[in-house]
C-alpha cells in the first residue's frame, strides 16, 4: 500500500504539479479556445446549446491532447531514461507504474472537466443539473480511455522526434474531422462518415447529448466500447511483444 501511495504521489508531482506542458496545453489552451469561440469571436447572441456543446468539445480536445501528446511523450521519455527498466527491476515491477500513470491520466481528464465546466458556468452561465455534470465527468473520464490507450501505443515509437510528428499527424486531423474545432456539417460530405467513426466524435456526440438532454445513441456507446476493447487488445499484445522479444531481451 505504501509502495502504491508513494508511486501515486511521485507521479502526481511530475505529471501535474510540476508539468507546465500539461497545465498549458491541456488546460489553458482548451479553456482559451472555449472563451475565444464562445465570447470573443462571435457576433450577436450565441445559442445556449452551443456554449454547452462546445464545452464538451473542448473537454474531449483537452483529453486528446493530454493522451496523444502528454501521456505518449511521458511514457516514451520514461522508457528512454531507463525509468521503466528501473521499475521492472524493483520487487513491485512495472504494473504499479502503469496503474499510477493511468489513474493520473483519468484525473487529468477530470481536471479539464472542472476547469472548462467552471468557465462555462462562470462566464457563459451554463446551467446543468448535478446528474448531468456527473454524467459528463464520467463519460469524459471513461470515454477517453480509448485515446489514452492510443497514447500508450504511440509511446512505443523509438524516437522522440518520430513521436512528435506522429502526435501532430494524428491529433489535429482527428480533432478536425471529428468536429471538435467546428461542426462536422461544415466538412466535405465524403469526410463526414469517416469523422463519425473517430473515437473523439463518438465521445463528443455522447457528451453533447447528455448536456443538452438529447436522445442518447447506442452507436456512440457501442462505438466507444469497440474502440476501447480493440485498442486494449492491441496495447496488450504490443506490450508483450515489445517487453519480451524473440531474442529474450526485455525492453522495459
Amino acid at each position: 500500500m505504501n509502495a502504491w501511495f508513494e508511486r501515486f504521489k511521485f507521479d502526481g508531482r511530475r505529471l501535474i504539479l510540476r508539468n507546465f506542458s500539461f497545465q498549458f496545453f491541456s488546460l489553458v489552451m482548451p479553456a482559451g479556445f472555449y472563451l475565444l469561440f464562445t465570447k470573443v469571436m462571435v457576433t450577436g447572441n450565441v445559442p445556449a446549446s452551443f456554449n454547452v456543446k462546445y464545452m464538451g468539445s473542448m473537454i474531449v480536445y483537452s483529453g486528446t491532447i493530454n493522451a496523444l501528446f502528454g501521456i505518449a511523450a511521458f511514457l516514451q521519455r520514461d522508457r528512454e531514461a531507463g525509468i521503466l527498466q528501473w521499475c521492472w527491476l524493483s520487487p513491485t515491477g512495472i504494473r504499479p507504474y502503469y496503474l499510477s500513470i493511468g489513474c493520473w491520466s483519468l484525473l487529468m481528464n477530470t481536471s479539464s472537466v472542472v476547469v472548462l465546466g467552471g468557465i462555462a458556468m462562470g462566464v457563459n452561465h451554463v446551467s446543468l443539473s448535478v446528474a448531468q455534470w456527473g454524467a459528463i465527468a464520467g463519460i469524459a473520464i471513461l470515454g477517453q480511455l480509448s485515446t489514452m490507450l492510443l497514447g500508450v501505443l504511440m509511446s512505443f515509437v523509438e524516437r522522440a522526434e518520430t513521436l512528435s510528428v506522429l502526435s501532430n499527424l494524428i491529433t489535429f486531423p482527428m480533432a478536425i474531422i471529428s468536429g471538435l474545432w467546428w461542426p462536422l456539417g461544415l466538412l466535405p460530405n465524403w469526410l463526414q462518415p469517416i469523422g463519425k467513426l473517430m473515437p473523439t466524435y463518438l465521445i463528443n456526440d455522447w457528451l453533447g447529448r447528455v448536456a443538452t438532454h438529447g436522445t442518447l445513441l447506442t452507436s456512440d456507446i457501442l462505438g466507444t466500447g469497440a474502440w476501447m476493447i480493440s485498442l486494449l487488445v492491441v496495447v496488450i499484445v504490443s506490450v508483450r511483444l515489445l517487453l519480451k522479444r524473440s531474442d529474450g531481451v526485455v525492453r522495459a
Partner: peptide, 16 residues
C-alpha cells in the same frame, strides 16, 4: 527524471 527531487526519488525507491 524530470520534475522530482533526489529525496523524492529515493523515497519512492525505498517504498518498493
Amino acid at each position: 527524471i524530470r520534475g522530482v527531487t533526489v529525496q523524492e526519488v529515493l523515497r519512492l525507491a525505498a517504498a518498493q
